[in-house]
Design a protein around this nucleic acid. Structure first.
Lengths: 221, 221, 221, 221
DNA sequence: TATGAATGAGAGTTCATTCAT
DNA sequence: CATGAATGAACTCTCATTCAT
């Protein structure tokens, strides 16, 4: 059946079945994502998702058990791509680095975009809650670990509650991106970065880190 | 029809028509509030709200246009009571004061409780968006004004972006209360207050404010 | 509210709420019954049942959980009325009596009418199975008891298997009515009655019973 | 299907196209039969039938117009094999013979097995009705003919309604097998046979037939 | 005014059937 | 011919909203 494809001299190999299915599945995911974000989860119907993806209603149900499962798939899918390479907080100018980090990280959170869709759902879907909680936990521990390292080196305030700090950062990161997407003003990243640095580093350390980009590395020796 | 009651020479209902209606309306508001918070807006039916309020389904529609309007009323209602007396940020130990403020303020935000319900709704209801935005704006300007005063007195970092700072504070306040309600650990307020102070005040000012409770007042003179 | 009705001098008492609900419920039952019989259970939709009963689709679901439950209700309802007063088999001409019995009994089974609808359903609905089985059992034991009495008086064949006989009778009764309803020929009752008498009574007893209507009573003394 | 491999003596599939098609068709028939019996007609999907037969959904529709037509084919197919060689009712002990007959005949009816599936379908499918009615008619006339012969020889009750009797016998036969299949108790055949003999033969003839196995043949001379 | 039964549009889902590969 | 993904009509059931009492 698909043997013929092999004989095609290489020009336009028909997309193999599996891949086409993947395509359709992705189209549905995309479509679902877009609609969830723009109209909200409850306001989006399976029919619409299918229509926007250019397939029939029934096709939706070939790929997903139901709307909820599409959302879950969406989350897993996106969460995969969510984990940022979390570099040292203390190499280079922390404000700049944080701003960058925010931009990347927050952008992802935002592209995931579902954060506006999720709150209500969490109320009625404990499983969903779990998935999200565990994703957040992963992010949390990355940030936490980074802070801890800095803390151990005596770079941070010495009376810092790392846990509270961590989720404060997450919260600000997530919402900064939201702001930026709405306003288009990317300077927000800088501003928030500065605020967070104030939360983390005593002023003199911060100054050192900013002027002497190798300060921290030198410290290690 | 029930006018007759009024003519009853004193035998009967002390509660005047209007007041009884008010009671019913309030019962519906309460009931709606509770259900929205515990199950989510979409998951709550008009019938349920009425039942929990102890009235018939139809009665719901005598007091509210529809479910959505009840939500709006709820917001206006709650927002009224939401505005905290926002005293000077700089009298007394700021951390303590902030912690107190958080507790009061955040508690209100929380009691309003709808923040978990709103995100999705905002997507489909621009009017709702406006109501909420304006409420947030009010809170924002209070905080902002307070910060500005402090800033003018030279108590804060001099490169502070007041706007960003303000919404960071709001964000943290709102979510801290959420945390506390979940965990029951009221120390969170303290911790977050400390973090926010770091964002606002340079360490030396902070110390001054904490040791010399009249520092700021003296400054004024 | 319905107090007013009491004051009506007797002319046109409004049907009380409860009764009206009963009416509607009954309309649905009737409608369901008719449709199940004429088109089969699976071929009948809830919408149709509602439409035929002159109510909206949603109303159907106020009174019944679903189509299946309507069927169950139908069964219980009808089965109630199904139990025939099963008089002695041996007073009067047995053939005549049986013919009468068939007519009444079979007619009921038939009016119940669901026997053509049930077989397939039984395959997928164990609970339904139970309801029906227990109804059949009740009928079975009535017939059985009658036969036993006759048997004890030595009126029947002495090597009779009462159980097999009983269900044979039920089978024939049920199907005779079916035949009659299709053909309109009520003589079938007579014919089947005669056949059954052959199954039950030895010829000489039968003759006695037919000629001497008091034969059996005399026997007792 | 995978037979081909075995036969690949080198050149080609020995199994001619037609035969392979036949095989597939049969597989589908079997599969449909099994599923109809175990889950009911409406509860069985074309997809399932195909799957159980080991072919694709689409293939189903190459062999059958639709599910209904498969059922029809099934009936014709099975009915072919349904007609029992109906020997004289009056050679040998009638009870024994009948019991045997029941076992064979009823077994077939049962193996056909669709009797639990058909009732509802008949309601919506007049054509199906016809097919079945005609099949039953064939069986009916065989039994009828046998009874008539016996009747002509004066072996039966002289006031017998042969028609009613015939369908009574069919009814009992069909259901006895049902009982036996459920209970496993093959004695039921005997019991029902005895009952039917009571319906057909006067006691003295029956006795004769049972003691003198040649009684009837002698009669002929 | 209060009531709650009734309404019916519409969401979710299934499955007989078609059709591109 | 076989395949199985795709289709979309049709079904079940819910719930915001209306309306007769």
């Amino acid at each position: 059946m698909s043997d013929r494809e092999d004989q095609l001299v290489g020009d336009f190999p028909l997309v193999p079945k599996q891949e086409r299915a993947q395509q359709k599945r992705n189209a549905l995911l995309e479509s679902g994502h877009a609609l969830f974000i723009s109209k909200g989860y409850e306001q989006t119907t399976a029919k619409e998702i299918a229509a926007k993806a250019g397939v029939a209603t029934g096709t939706f149900y070939r790929y997903f058990l139901d709307k909820r499962q599409l959302l879950m798939a969406l989350l897993e899918d996106k969460i995969e791509k969510l984990m940022p390479p979390e570099p040292s907080w203390v190499i280079g100018n922390p404000e700049t680095r944080l701003a960058e980090l925010f931009e990347v990280h927050g952008n992802r959170l935002q592209r995931l975009g579902l954060h506006r869709v999720l709150p209500e759902l969490i109320l009625k879907d404990p499983e969903l809650s779990k998935v999200i909680a565990s994703a957040k936990l992963k992010i949390h521990s990355r940030i936490y670990a980074g802070l801890q390292k800095a803390s151990e080196k005596g770079l941070t305030w010495n009376d810092l509650d790392l846990n509270t700090l961590t989720w404060s950062i997450m919260l600000l990161a997530e919402n900064t991106t939201g702001k930026v997407l709405e306003s288009g003003d990317t300077e927000e990243y800088q501003k928030t970065a500065k605020i967070i640095c104030r939360m983390v580093f005593p002023p003199e350390v911060l100054k050192k880190l900013q002027t002497d980009e190798n300060y921290e590395e030198n410290l290690e020796n």
